[in-house]
Computed example of a mutant assay.
Amino acid sequence: MATVGLVERSRTVVFDLGEVLVSSGEVLPLLAAEVGVSPAEFATAYWPGRPAYDLGGAPEDYWTGVVRALDREPDPALLRRLVQLDSAKWSTLPQASADLLAHVRGRGIRLAVLSNAPAPLAAAVRAAPWSAVVGHLVFSAEEALVKPDPAIYARADATYGTEPGDVIFFDDKPENVAAARAHGWDAHVWAGATAALAALER
């Protein structure tokens, strides 16, 4: 079989979004400033309700909970700003990630994304120019499944048109990587772009 240097042409490289292609350090400080608290304080309110939001929960419900946990009033205008800012920042690739995707795609390798993400963020990624080079995007809110549920990896294979042995996957959470490996994917805990390229070379 012909190869393209990094991996075989038939393979599909799948990236998580949050903490892989985009760091929370690019997002949470701006959201915290919008509410008027420190990033550390904001994080304590931001993460607990996120799984339900990623599973398809209503934006108003999630952000009302975040704002109230920070002892702020859930003003509708504030909630709208938080939804928009959260989606815009998580869907904006830093240059290093854009370069990584361009490098991998330039070798003729298929790209895909599998992310636990709420519906507004999924829509923002689909509208972002960079996502046009990604063959398939699978988001938890659209599938009503979240990693590490085994079913989401099978759903992703169906979307990508792959068999488990075709997929190389990068995710920041060890439990998501373990579930992907159990499904049959060649999965790796994210340790940065350089480490990812080294894993693809191997």
Score class of each variant (00 low, 15 high):
Met1Ile: 12
Ala2Val: 12
Ala2Pro: 01
Thr3Cys: 01
Val4Thr: 07
Leu6Trp: 08
Glu8Cys: 04
Glu8Asp: 15
Ser10Lys: 09
Ser10Ile: 03
Val14Leu: 06
Phe15Leu: 00
Asp16Lys: 13
Leu17Tyr: 06
Gly18Tyr: 11
Val20Lys: 07
Val22Asp: 04
Ser24Pro: 00
Gly25Val: 07
Leu28Val: 10
Leu30Trp: 09
Leu30Ala: 15
Ala33Ile: 15
Glu34Asn: 13
Glu34Lys: 14
Val35Thr: 04
Val35Glu: 11
Phe42Ala: 10
Trp47Val: 03
Gly49Glu: 15
Pro51Ser: 15
Ala52Gln: 11
Ala52Leu: 14
Tyr53Cys: 01
Tyr53Arg: 09
Asp54Met: 09
Leu55Met: 11
Gly56Glu: 11
Gly57Leu: 13
Tyr62Phe: 12
Gly65Glu: 12
Gly65Pro: 03
Val67Met: 15
Arg68Thr: 05
Ala69Gly: 15
Leu70Tyr: 14
Asp71Cys: 05
Arg72Thr: 06
Glu73Tyr: 12
Pro74Thr: 09
Ala77Lys: 13
Ala77His: 13
Leu78Tyr: 08
Leu78Val: 08
Gln84Asn: 03
Gln84Thr: 10
Gln84Met: 12
Leu85Phe: 01
Leu85Ile: 09
Asp86Asn: 09
Ser87Phe: 05
Ser87Arg: 10
Ser91Ala: 12
Ser91Glu: 05
Thr92Lys: 07
Thr92His: 07
Pro94Asn: 03
Gln95Ala: 10
Gln95Thr: 08
Ala96His: 07
Ser97Trp: 02
Asp99Gly: 09
Leu100Met: 05
Leu101Ile: 02
Ala102Phe: 05
Val104Asn: 01
Arg105Met: 08
Gly106Ser: 07
Gly106Gln: 09
Arg107Tyr: 04
Gly108Arg: 03
Ile109Gln: 00
Arg110Asp: 07
Leu111Ala: 05
Leu114Val: 08
Ala117Tyr: 06
Pro120Gln: 13
Ala124Gly: 02
Ala128Glu: 05
Ser131Thr: 11
Ala132Met: 10
Ala132Trp: 12
Val134Ile: 12
Gly135Leu: 02
Gly135Met: 10
His136Ala: 14
Leu137Trp: 07
Val138Glu: 00
Ser140Met: 09
Glu143Cys: 13
Val146Gly: 04
Lys147Trp: 10
Pro148Met: 15
Pro148Asp: 05
Asp149Ala: 15
Asp149Ser: 14
Tyr153Trp: 05
Arg155Phe: 14
Ala156Cys: 09
Ala156His: 07
Thr159Asn: 03
Tyr160Ile: 13
Glu163Val: 13
Pro164Arg: 09
Gly165Asp: 08
Gly165Gln: 11
Asp166Leu: 08
Asp166Phe: 11
Asp171Tyr: 11
Asp172Cys: 12
Ala178Pro: 01
Ala179Asn: 02
Ala179Trp: 01
Ala179Cys: 05
Gly184Met: 08
Asp186His: 14
Ala187Ser: 02
His188Ala: 11
Ala191Pro: 07
Ala191Ser: 11
Ala193Ser: 11
Ala193Trp: 07
Ala193Met: 08
Ala195Trp: 14
Ala199Tyr: 02
Leu200Phe: 06
Leu200Arg: 03
Arg202Cys: 03
